[in-house]
C-alpha cells in the first residue's frame, strides 16, 4: 500500500513563527510536520505521511485578496492526497482561514480535506455544510484528541469510504439529509422516546431543534410617509424565464431587479420559481407575493414616502441558514447605501 501524502495547514502561531506581531506573515511552507503536525503524524500512523506544512499569518490570510489561493497553490506543489487544516479551536480568523483553505483545496486539488474547531467558532457556522469539521475544545488543551479524530476521518475520506453520521464519526452536523431504512417504524421510536422522557430517563432526539440567534428589534420608523421603503420577497419571484437562474430551493443567491417607474407585475413578465409550494396562484397574479400595485398606490397617496427602486428576491425553501444570513447582511448593506429605512418582506 502506498503511503498517502498529507499537507498540514497552520497559522503563524502554531507554525512557531510568532503570535500577534507575526500575524502579517505571508504564506510559506516547510518540509515535514511542524508543531501540532507531529501529533498529527502519530495519529495517522504509517498509512499517511505529513510531507509538508503550509502556514500563513491570520491577518494576511484574512485581509490580502488572493491569499487563500496562494496558500492552496503552495499546498498543491506538495501533491497531497489529504489536506488537514488546523484545528483552530475558538480562534476566529484562524477558523475562517481553515474553512476557506479546506474548501478551496478540495475544489482545486480534488483532495480529501478535514478541519477542526470549536462549535461556537463563527467559521463553524459558515463552513460546516461545506467541509467536515471536527468539534474541538476551546483551546489547544484539546489538541491530541482533535487531531486523532481528524486523522481518522481524513484517512476514511481519502480511501473513498462513506462517512457515517456526524454523531458516530465525530464531526459537526452538515445539514445534509441521508436516507436510510430504520429497523423500527417512527411511531414506535417516538413513543419509546416519549416514555423515556416521561420517566426522566436519557433519550436521544433524532431531529435536533435548531437554535436561532435572536436579533434585537429595530427601533420603530417615525413615519413611513416620509421614509424610503423597500419590497423584499422570499417567494422566488423572478422575470419570466428566470434569466439569472435563481434556484427553486437551497438558494445560494439573492437577486435585485429594477422596479423604477413600474407599478404592475404582469404575469407575462414575472413568475415564481419557488419549489416548496404550488405557485399557480402567484403565476396568475404576481402581486399575490409582491404587493407592488398597492405599494405604488400608497406611495401616490402619500402613505409611503418613496418606494426603493429595486425588488430584492430569493427563494426561501430548504434554505441553509448561513447562506440566508449572508443574504441578510448583503441586502442590509445595499439598503444602507441606498438610504432605505424600512422593509416589507413577504414570505410564503
Amino acid at each position: 500500500m502506498t503511503t498517502l501524502r498529507v499537507v498540514h495547514y497552520l497559522n503563524q502561531f502554531f507554525a512557531g513563527i510568532g503570535s500577534e506581531d507575526k500575524a502579517d506573515t505571508p504564506p510559506g511552507r516547510r518540509e515535514g510536520p511542524t508543531g501540532p503536525g507531529r501529533l498529527l503524524q502519530q495519529s495517522l500512523g504509517d498509512r499517511a505521511q505529513v510531507v509538508t506544512t503550509v502556514y500563513c499569518g491570520d491577518n494576511h490570510v484574512g485581509e490580502k485578496p488572493g491569499a487563500v489561493e496562494d496558500v492552496v497553490g503552495l499546498i498543491g506543489e506538495a501533491q497531497p492526497d489529504i489536506v488537514i487544516a488546523g484545528p483552530a479551536f475558538s480562534a476566529g480568523r484562524y477558523g475562517l482561514a481553515c474553512g476557506a483553505v479546506a474548501v478551496r483545496a478540495r475544489e482545486r486539488l480534488g483532495v480529501a480535506v478535514v478541519t477542526g474547531m470549536h462549535p461556537d467558532n463563527a467559521a463553524a457556522e459558515i463552513y460546516r455544510t461545506k467541509v467536515p469539521i471536527v468539534p474541538t475544545e476551546k483551546t489547544a488543551t484539546g489538541m491530541a484528541e482533535a487531531l486523532s479524530v481528524m486523522a481518522r476521518l481524513a484517512l476514511r475520506l481519502a480511501a473513498h469510504e462513506p462517512l457515517g453520521s456526524p454523531r458516530q464519526e465525530g464531526y459537526l452536523p452538515t445539514g445534509h439529509r441521508v436516507f436510510h431504512e430504520a429497523a423500527r417504524p417512527a411511531t414506535d421510536r417516538a413513543v419509546e422516546m416519549l416514555l423515556r422522557k416521561v420517566r426522566g430517563e436519557r433519550y436521544t432526539t433524532e431531529w435536533e431543534v435548531p437554535r436561532y440567534t435572536l436579533v434585537p428589534p429595530a427601533p420603530p420608523l417615525r413615519d413611513p410617509a416620509t421614509a424610503k421603503i423597500a419590497l423584499v420577497t422570499t417567494g422566488g419571484l423572478v422575470p419570466t424565464g428566470n434569466p439569472d437562474r435563481l434556484e427553486s430551493g437551497y438558494a445560494t443567491k439573492w437577486l435585485r431587479y429594477s422596479i423604477k417607474g413600474v407599478s404592475e407585475l404582469p404575469p407575462e413578465r414575472w413568475q415564481s420559481v419557488h419549489g416548496g409550494f404550488d405557485t399557480t396562484l402567484i403565476n396568475l397574479d404576481p402581486h399575490r407575493v409582491v404587493p407592488l400595485d398597492v405599494a405604488r398606490e400608497l406611495e401616490r397617496e402619500g402613505a409611503i414616502g418613496s418606494l426603493f427602486d429595486e425588488l430584492f428576491t430569493t427563494t426561501g425553501n430548504t434554505s441553509v441558514i448561513p447562506d440566508i444570513r449572508r443574504f441578510a447582511r448583503e441586502m442590509t448593506q445595499a439598503f444602507k447605501v441606498a438610504g432605505v429605512e424600512g422593509v416589507i418582506l413577504t414570505s410564503t
Partner: peptide, 9 residues
Amino acid sequence: AITSVVGDP
C-alpha cells in the same frame, strides 16, 4: 396563505 400571501383568490 402560503400560496397567496398578499392576495385572496
